[in-house]
């Protein structure tokens, strides 16, 4: 039993020990979509001069999208594959997000291309998260599965997400990936600047 008043912070994405009522799988994924949307919202409010902030937020977006894809692909999709036939489309949409994320990393954070890629990133995310999952897949899963299954699945997803977020190896891996993805793009941009 909890004692005293519980102060609810509005920092949603922190993995603090706040005791919350059990979340169902679809709620949990829906909330994580919110986290991704929040990062992009913050990114779109940054100015071109604030390169550091843009880079830091892009890094955060990269990690969160990668982790989101991972928990869905490893836990959620295999669990619903028996009754949801259109999973291949969802897999393909993840691939589109990965490619768009790479395009965003390649773009120079101080340029107009970055803003264009960010707009596209939002479109790509909404095509998957909203049009496919939130409007079609999630309601169907909620209709077909009972509360206990959904809550148990939600716990598994949350548990895995927490573990991924605190994994040092994964963080290092993401950093390396970002470095490699930015590498050639930055090199090309620099060469072009020197040429002009």
């Amino acid at each position: 039993m909890k004692k005293g008043t519980q102060v609810l912070t509005d920092r949603k994405k922190q993995t603090t020990e706040v005791i919350t009522p059990p979340k169902t799988a679809t709620q949990m994924l829906y909330e994580h979509h919110g986290v991704l949307r929040g990062i992009m919202e913050r990114l779109s409010r940054t100015s071109r001069d604030d390169i550091e902030q843009r880079r830091a937020l892009t890094d955060e977006l990269y990690s969160e999208v990668q982790m989101h894809e991972r928990i869905e692909e490893h836990i959620f999709y295999p669990a619903i594959s028996d009754f949801h036939p259109k999973l291949d489309a969802a897999w393909s949409e993840h691939r589109q997000m990965t490619d768009q994320l790479a395009a965003l990393l390649r773009a120079d954070p101080g340029g107009a291309r970055f803003e264009e890629e960010l707009r596209l990133m939002r479109d790509v995310l909404e095509a998957h998260a909203h049009l496919d999952e939130e409007l079609e897949m999630f309601p169907e899963v909620e209709r077909l599965m009972d509360e206990a299954w959904l809550v148990e699945m939600g716990e598994r997803l949350q548990d895995r997400l927490d573990r991924l977020r605190s994994s040092r190896t994964l963080r290092a891996r993401h950093r390396l990936e970002r470095m490699m993805l930015r590498g050639p793009g930055r090199l090309i941009a620099r060469t072009m600047r020197r040429g002009s």
Partner: peptide
């Protein structure tokens, strides 16, 4: 794939699947 769920990129419509 449903092109109406896709997005616009440089004057073309992009399929959300591939």
């Amino acid at each position: 794939g449903p092109l109406s769920q896709g997005w616009l990129r440089d004057g073309s419509i992009v399929c959300p699947w591939h």
